[in-house]
Structures are given as structure tokens and as C-alpha cells.
Simulated assay, not measured.
Amino acid sequence: MSALPRPAARRSSLSPRHWVSEELFDFWAGRVNPLWTQRRARARLVARDAASADAVTLVLRPNRHFRGVAPGQHITLGVEVDGRRLSRSYSPTVLDDGSLAITVKAVAGGKVSQHLAQHAQVGEVFELGEAFGEMTLPAVPSARLLLLAAGSGITPMRALLRQLDSAGMPVQVDLVYWAQQRDALCFAEELASIAARHPGFQVHLALTRDPAARAARVGDYDFSALGDLSGAHVMACGPGGFVDAAQARLHGQVATLQSEAFTPPVLPDVETGTVQVELRRSGRTLELPRGTSLLQALEAEGLRPASGCRMGICNTCVCGKASGVTRHTLTGEYAAEPATQVKLCVNSASTDLILEL
């Protein structure tokens, strides 16, 4: 008689995730070291340095759960301010030791930017979201590059230029960097150092309020001084008005143009008045203004929906819309389809709405 088959041995695990919930593990492990989590990406502030007269660079050391970020992409930073968990998106530079450098300018009324630029201390721990964004380079760039940056738009450009520097600057690259005054420039010494190593890289500073320079803004800038741009790929980053002006100025003169705006452009003929917005899950009905993003309108009512980039990129604020018409604050397009997803940060209410909030 053949022996009966032995039952499969039960697998056992000593992993803590089988003993307690993730939230409970993170809570107690965090009492010992806030970077100890089961799966959550977090980072500790290890250094801070002045980047310009009105900006600071923070160096963050992530834990092992951070999945990385490509040069030019953004990450969402979760920050605790006055007992509230807030989040904003920044474009980091990965340093040689794997740390992340983010440069922040304190914005009037911006609770997160003011906290980071003025109050965050070495040792503070932040939540890290996954990387997102399309402002990236191919593995082997082949076309001439024209980089346009204004204000904080220099931060993704810094990461891209470090990538190109490491690759030996494989194509011709021109950076035109707009700022009001010389002391508002970030990474000036680093940019000059990269230019000194690579003859194919040129930095053009456009100081709009410097009495000695008085450079033209992007809409009136003399790009002919840079030579033939018909085959160039343009990457532009800055405030919404800057990006719009760059697109209008270079339309038809370059091969391709890629852009990111960190403030939304102002649309003409913005709708006025108010509408009724029902929040189905919480059972509340609010009177919200038309023409204002749903995220801003809800925050003005004391609500705190999940949010991240506030530019319509990261999808953190997406929620269900059961019915009603919304207007996209960046394009002006209307959306009337029921049972769809809506990004609260870049949509306003045009009619009464029902949201899954």
C-alpha cells in the first residue's frame, strides 16, 4: 500500500504585518524611529541652506520605501502644520547619496511653503508620495534643447541639467532663466559650473527688474540670438502666465514644446454666482461660488479634501461626480457626463453638483 500524501505544511511568518495592522505597526514603530514603517515612504530633513534671497533648499533622506523619482518629476510632500496634515508638490533633485533636495520659496498665505521655508527644523519627518509628471528627458536625447524657467520653475530644470551633465551633455542645451533680481537666482554657481564643463551648454540670465539688465519678459524675448531653433525641443516651467506667453511666443518656431505651470492661468469670462453642491457621503449641502476651483471653495467652508499638486497633475484630489456640470479652470472646457471622476483642484461648479465626498 502506497503511503498517503502528506498534507502541505502551513506557512508561517514572523513578519510583524501578520501580527498587527499597518497603522498600528507604524504608530508604535514611529515612537522609536518615524522612518520605520511597513510600506509608507517617509523622509527626514537632514539639512537646510539658503538657495537665494527668498528661497531655501531642504535636503531630505528618504526611507527604504521611497520608489525614486526621475529628473524633472514631482513628489507630494505631506507636512504637519498647526496639527493639520497638509500636502504640496515639489520637484526634487536626487543628490549623489540618494538624498532629495527640494527648493522652496515662501508664498504669501501659503501655510506649507512658509512652514518649510521659515520654520521646518532638521529632524522633522515628512510623508512622501509617488513621483509623477511628464517633464522628463529620453534616455538618450537627440534634439537640441531649449530650457525656459521662471521663478520656482528652475527646480525641475536643475534636476534635468544634472542628468545631462552626468551624461556628458550629449546635445546642445540653452537655459534661459528669468528672475526679478540677481539675488533671487537659485543655483547660480552650480549652473555656471556645469556651463564651464560643457561648451555645448549656455546659461542666459533674464533679470527683469535689475537696473543694469532690464531683460525682456518671455513674450518679448529675442530668441534669434540663440540661433536656429527650428529643430529644438523646448521645455518651459514657471507661473501660468509665463508658460502661456512662452507657448504663444515660440509657436511655429520650434519643433516641439513641453510645459508645466505651477499656477493656473486666469480665464476670461469666469462664471459668477453660486450653486448648490451636495456632498453625498457626508450628507451636507453647501452653497459654493462658480468660477472658483472646487478644492478652494470646499476649503473655504472648512473642509479638507485630500489634495497634492493643486495643478491637476497628481490626481490626489480626484473624487466621484454623480451629476452636474463642471468647468475646467485651465482650459475652460465643460464636462456634463454623470458618474465620472473630477479633479477638485482644476474644476469649478457650473451647475448644482452631487459629489462623492
Rank of each mutant, 00 (worst) to 15 (best):
S142F: 06
Q202I: 10
G200R: 13
A101I: 04
E124V: 13
E130C: 07
V94N: 05
G151D: 02
Q180N: 12
V122M: 01
H204M: 03
A184H: 15
R209D: 07
L146G: 04
V173Q: 04
R197T: 08
P156K: 02
V125E: 04
Q118R: 14
S113P: 00
H119P: 02
L207H: 12
G110R: 05
P138S: 09
I102G: 04
R197H: 05
R144E: 15
V176I: 14
E127P: 03
G133N: 08
S166W: 13
H198F: 11
L175C: 04
M135V: 12
L191K: 09
L164H: 03
R158D: 00
M157D: 03
G153A: 00
A215V: 06
R209K: 12
K111M: 15
R144V: 02
G123T: 05
D183M: 12
I154F: 03
A212V: 12
A179W: 10
M169T: 00
P199F: 10
S224K: 07
D222K: 03
F126T: 08
E127K: 08
L147F: 13
P156Y: 04
D97T: 11
L100I: 03
A206C: 10
F132C: 02
A216H: 11
V173I: 00
L175S: 03
Q172D: 15
Q181L: 14
D210I: 03
F223E: 07
A206M: 00
D183N: 15
P211S: 09
P141S: 05
Q118Y: 07
L95H: 10
S99G: 11
L100N: 05
L95G: 06
L116F: 04
D220Y: 07
Q163K: 14
P211E: 10
A184M: 13
P141Y: 01
H204W: 14
S99N: 14
G109N: 01
F223Y: 13
G129S: 08
L175W: 08
L160P: 00
S99P: 07
E127H: 14
P211G: 02
A225Y: 03
D183S: 15
A167W: 13
A188S: 11
A139H: 06
